[in-house]
Design a protein around this nucleic acid. Sequence first.
RNA 1: GGCGGUGUAGCUCAGGUGGUUAGAGCGACGGUCUCAUAAUCCGUAGGUCGAAGGUUCGAGUCCUUCCGCCGCCA
Length: 690
Amino acid sequence: MDNKFYITTPIYYVNARPHIGHAYTTIVCDMMARRERMLGKDVFFLTGTDEHGVHVERAAQAAGKPAQQWADEVSSSFRRLWDVLGLSYNKFIRTTDAEHKRGVQEMFRRLRDNGYIYKGKYTGQYCVFDELYVDSAGPGAPCPECGRPTETVSEENYFFKLSAFEEKLLKLYRDQPDFIRPETRRNEVASFVRSGLRDLSVTRSTFRWGVPVPDDPGHVIYVWLDALSNYCTAIGFGSPDPADQQRFQRYWPADVHMIGKEIVRFHCVYWPAFLMAAGLELPKTIVAHGWLLFEHDKMSKSRGNVVRAETIVEAMSRDALRYFLLREIVFGQDGSFSFDALVQRYNADLANDLGNLASRTLTMITRYFGGQVPYPSPTEARKPADDEIAEIARRTISEFNAKFEKFQFSHALETAWSLVSAVNKYLVENEPWTLGEKQDDVSRARLGTILYTSAEALRVVTALAHPVIPESSARIWAQLGLGEIVNFKLAELKWGQLPLGTKIGKVEPVFPRADKSVVEKMQAMEQERRTPTVETEKKAGAAAQPAGRAVEVKPAPAPAASAAGAPATTPAAKAGAGPPEGKISIDDFAKVELRVGQVKLAEKVQGADKLLRLEVDLGSETRQVVAGIAEAYAPELLIGRKVVIVANLAPRKLRGLVSDGMIVAASVGEQGKPVLAGFLEDVPVGAKLK
RNA sequence: GGCGGUGUAGCUCAGGUGGUUAGAGCGACGGUCUCAUAAUCCGUAGGUCGAAGGUUCGAGUCCUUCCGCCGCCA
């Protein structure tokens, strides 16, 4: 078997700045890359940025910058973050790189030469915002992605014969069950393909910011074909240079494409179809992880927090963040992040368990044996407890590796920590400190055995955990007197390799305990860094969707950005010279347009217990508003009622319905029962509140 | 609406092919030790395993229906 390992992150779309969700994806890959390197593989770890498309063009425009300059700036902010996090990527690709563009054109040519591209005419609905053709929809129908009205267009495009791959893809999913992980994603993809594939439009002529189609520069290549090709172009595909070609031969196909669950379809349907059409090998496996959600901060008013990785690194450490993400979140599922959970996990596992084990073990070796790893007694001073630890360690190594192979990172770490617990218990039960007071030979031999056992177990855990906590594990390793951990061959790890008589290094705490003030510090840092520009999330500011452009439909961080997310979660705008902490200025309030409206129609939303669809007359116009008040108000009782509407809230889609505005209500009691705002005197429809 | 998944202690999760009193970690509470980062270690927490039926000598573990949540698709 060949000895290479090629792993990729998605390339991140540069219409928004990086946040902890992007960091999560990339950290997982970094950890896997480090582990494979430790196992002796020739690793190529790729990440980068996706920089074409109308969103970028638009974001740059809003910022008053040329598209390339905008892309340069955002791309470098990603790169900076990866460097702050100490990630070990081998290459950072940008889709605006000349080599990449050349490679994409080569990919297009191959598809065309192999007969999978044809020119056709599309007439139908198109969402300009998402660059998306909406099939089987009438004029003006809402975009399924963003809810904005679609436009009717008729244009000539190049199409890819995706329909020709239906059977081949289904066969692929059958024959290679690990092609898509986890299984639930594979089921989704298979059922999608089974329902029939349409040919895919793979060029656009409505904007310029992209890779031109070879021999037909009036068209640019659709962003997905452009973006996905990065996995090949980054390692030399499409280059005339023999060295590049050799590199491509060496590393392709990818061993792992790591992606977020929102871009599964593109990677598991389109990408393999493109590759088959181009006559290239398919990646070994595509792994979709879940999203990182942010818990509401219970100590203050509920509000959505977008946490930045830099804050955690600065207030705690890189390893604290890495450990948390990999241990706390069950890989593949959505996970929730909170500062409290982070600190708690750090203290419990890293400071109290592992850190303290290192500290107590190494201190005793220093004190009782002058800093030299003692000899374990072969016979007389040996007890069953010592062999039990050795046995647990052996089991831990194999279980840890098995879980890792199955991408069960959190469970693997749990397994490793069970060894830490066992050793802490072993120390209490065997009381080496009591033996340390005695000078007789038997006591000395017993003491040596105990401390050797403890130190050796510490070594095993440290080696296993190194990919996850590279810096602190390196320090423990050095304190054990073992030199550079990166030189260690993980494949050879087994019990009993700690050299006897090793002179241990200077002992110092690796994981200083974090107290509550660290949480406050991080919260304050986030508060401070939060700019007046509110970058909102699609899903009520709750989900950080790390990887995909498909859902990164945020507007650029433009000056006048308004909240498009959950109305209740708008963080207080804060500027250096602004109003006092927690207050807003009259100007801020003036941004909110509140108007009196009259309910003309109210009905339950199918399939949603809490939602009502309302049509509200605002005087000048009638709006559709979807409100979560069905449990408190019967629809028929609302008709004719005058309510207060937030009139300038960006439209949002709920259960497939566009909600254009928000109804104002008090939230009462623990259940947050809504009580609609109203007036004691009669007021005209359309009146503005101020 | 179709398909798929899921619902186990306060929280996060384990619980192949059904079998004694349903588990772990964290948190909480009480206690202990003192080598160690006020860490470790021990004990306690009494969860109708979403609900109701069914199959079975026996079901968290299989079947049916219902409810909740989630995903994909339409």
